[in-house]
């Protein structure tokens, strides 16, 4: 339970950080913000790697592998498409 409180504290505090940082993003960049933050939520790839690689059981390996493919698409595609969009905004600076 103590552990939980610790993690929950981290959760709440980073919410505040998120609110602070993201309020400053101008509306012009809201689409890249969504795709970029979405790529960040692909951090779940970390868990997928362990599930898929630890060979605990066939079931967990299948679950982990599927999650790994999903999360990798999310991460790679997300960062790349965000980059593509942001380049467009920079071009005429």
């Amino acid at each position: 339970m103590e552990d939980f409180i610790l993690y929950f504290t981290v959760f709440v505090l980073s919410m505040f950080v998120g609110f602070e940082v993201i309020t400053k993003v101008p509306p012009t960049l809201h689409t890249p913000l969504m795709s970029g933050s979405n790529a960040i939520s692909g951090i779940t790839i970390v868990g997928a790697l362990i599930s898929a690689g630890s060979h605990h059981s066939t079931l967990t390996t299948i679950l982990g592998f599927t999650a790994l493919v999903f999360a990798t698409i999310n991460v790679v595609g997300g960062f790349m498409v965000t980059h593509r969009m942001l380049q467009m905004f920079r071009r005429k600076d």
Partner: peptide, 30 residues
Amino acid sequence: GLAASATGFVLENNALIISGSLVGASGIIL
């Protein structure tokens, strides 16, 4: 984002909790 955060609680992994809540906050603002 919130789903990633919840998974962070499952795995006791701060990287997931922090990143997930950042994205959660971003989505809520938008």
